[in-house]
Design a binder for these strands. Structure first.
Lengths: 147, 147
DNA sequence: TGTGATTTAGTCTCCTGCGATATAATTATG
DNA sequence: CATAATTATATCGCAGGAGACTAAATCACA
């Protein structure tokens, strides 16, 4: 059939798109407990690893534009999770850092990856396959970023 | 280190999330030519394969809620890509079908998957690996939908 | 030193994506 | 037949995500 490549099932794009939403959905109940959203969780993970980062560094790590990250960070500031203040050295930069509350969330969040991992492992894929999947996606991400 | 599992790089979720956005971004220039968005393209692919579907069937295929798909379809109707009309047999149903214009877009769209595929194949992964990746994601999607 | 380019954030606007809820049509059941 | 449950779609409100653009600070270099 001439248009076979236009079938949804034959494309890589759709599974990536669908899996992304389904995985986010899977996080939802755990994130609800902490009263944060999935992108907020990603920001927190970055800051837990290295506190005090300029907006742009966070955007780069998450591969997001500043017009996405700025309102996100503002909402997080309103919720009392982070502080935002201009850098003294370079006044173009806004340094984002965790509040006490943001820092304390780490203790509760530490269980989330374990729970997710065990949920995924209930499925047909083993640890090695999931790691390979992660690495394969990493290859695609690097390839697309390189251009 | 106690919190290693909270590092961004150690989680599967983030690569899926990032790859999804990057791939969509890769489609953008091609979709811009057709003046459609990525989710609109997904809807069209479904209708190109089987025209005249109720809203709910489209939503299920795309794993989207009706509150996402309804405004999407309305915008597509405004753009003249599809028609929406209530089913005679079951008046709860709204049947979505392609317009002449929506149908003709198929001819132009047929090149998109080829272009995307060749772009991905410029990267470090071969056809077999990409197919395996698609299947692995399919396994995860099925597992998460099953629950 | 001055000025044009670059960097960094932010704003505006539009399109998703979804939880909660509403409404109307249909089906199931006592 | 009546009404409760289910199904199909839509609405409301909020949080992303991104393109196009603006503004301010800093940098590069003639």
């Amino acid at each position: 059939m001439k248009y076979d490549q236009l079938k949804l099932e034959n494309q890589l794009c759709f599974p990536v798109y669908a899996a992304s939403r389904l995985i986010t959905r899977e996080y939802q109940p755990y994130l609800d407990e902490l009263e944060i959203t999935y992108p907020q969780y990603l920001v927190l993970m970055i800051l837990w690893e290295k506190d005090e980062m300029p907006v742009n560094d966070i955007a780069k790590k998450l591969i997001l534009n500043t017009n996405t990250i700025t309102p996100l960070l503002k909402r997080m500031e309103t919720q009392g999770l982070v502080n935002r203040e201009r850098s003294k050295e370079d006044e173009r930069k806004v340094i984002v850092k965790l509040t006490e509350i943001g820092n304390e969330l780490k203790e509760k969040a530490v269980l989330i990856p374990e729970r997710l991992a065990s949920q995924l492992l209930e499925g047909p894929m083993g640890v090695e396959e999931l790691i390979r999947l992660k690495e394969d996606l990493g290859k695609i991400i690097n390839h697309l970023l390189r251009k």
